[in-house]
Structures are given as structure tokens and as C-alpha cells.
């Protein structure tokens, strides 16, 4: 699943570590989601959306991994 996590994070000038702290996950998890090696669970996807003040579908896009 494609996602805009890296772009959204960059817009806020956040490090992966900072986002990981916000989401209560490891930096490794944030990196794995950004590089599309790992799709987050639905609760984590909701948490990500809430953190950025967006809807899930604004961050995660349908389609194959790049």
C-alpha cells in the first residue's frame, strides 16, 4: 500500500524518531511504513491519521507497492 507519510512528516519537519514518539511505536516501524515494507494495523493507521489531522484515505492510497 502506498502512503504519504514521508511527505507529511517532511512538511512538519519531524524526524522519524519524533513521529515514532508521537505514535508510541519504534522508529523502525515508522521507517518500514514510509518505505512501504510494512502496512500498519488499522488502529495504527487511525492513530497516524489523527496525528496529522487527516483522514486515513488522505495518507494511505490504494494500489500496489512502488
Amino acid at each position: 500500500m502506498k502512503n504519504r507519510l514521508k511527505v507529511l512528516r517532511a512538511e512538519r519537519d519531524w524526524t522519524q524518531e519524533r513521529l515514532a514518539t508521537e505514535l508510541d511505536v519504534s522508529r523502525q516501524t515508522v521507517n518500514a511504513i514510509e518505505t512501504e515494507k510494512y502496512d500498519p494495523s488499522l488502529p495504527l493507521a487511525f492513530k497516524i491519521a489523527a496525528t496529522f489531522g487527516l483522514h486515513i484515505e488522505d495518507i494511505f492510497l490504494r494500489g500496489e507497492r512502488t
Binding site: R9, T15, Q16, A20, V25, S26, R27, Q28
Partner: peptide, 21 residues
């Protein structure tokens, strides 16, 4: 923007959260 470039450590759960560690 500052990227975090922690050197990878392949040990068990080396990259988990503080709670995991």
C-alpha cells in the same frame, strides 16, 4: 529536516521502543 541515522543493530529487538527494550 534531520533524518535519524541510527546505526542498524540486528540484535533481538534492538530497534524497538523503550518499553520493548
Amino acid at each position: 529536516m534531520t533524518e535519524t541515522n541510527t546505526p542498524p543493530n540486528p540484535a533481538i529487538c534492538s530497534q524497538g521502543t523503550q518499553r520493548d527494550r
